[in-house]
């Protein structure tokens, strides 16, 4: 029942927060939620962690790779897009765009 409670509360939080995102930013929102959906990689890691036959190895490895595509690709492409919106008269733009590579951080923590 605890999990159902968490789920229901998460529905309310999700609707509350996401309905405030302006239409203009809906494409980055989608690619960011793609990245957050990459959380399923945890499931892949868990099933691969205990896998003990050939097919399970294969399934688990593909699941982990799929999840990693979502996480790395999702956060990086979102960063790229948001850089275009942020890019404006401000001169400090260069520093911001080279310092931010969420995918790289992800990659580093995995290894």
């Amino acid at each position: 029942m605890t999990e159902i409670t968490i789920f229901v509360l998460a529905v309310f939080v999700g609707f509350e927060v996401i309905s405030k995102v302006p239409t203009t930013l809906h494409t980055p929102l989608m690619s960011q939620t793609n990245a957050i959906h990459g959380i399923v990689m945890l499931g892949g890691l868990i099933v691969l962690g205990y896998a003990d036959d050939g097919l399970e190895y294969l399934i688990g490895t593909i699941a982990v790779a799929f999840g990693a595509i979502n996480i790395v690709g999702g956060f990086m492409v979102t960063d790229r897009m948001l850089g275009m919106f942020a890019r404006k008269p401000k001169p400090k733009v260069k520093a911001a765009s080279s310092a931010s590579r969420p995918g790289a951080a992800e990659e580093g923590s995995g290894k």
């Binding site: 691969l48 490895t61 790779a65 290894k111």
Partner: peptide, 10 residues
């Protein structure tokens, strides 16, 4: 295998 999956996906 975990790192193989992570590597390919990344």
């Amino acid at each position: 295998l975990i790192f193989l999956g992570l590597g390919i996906g990344t």
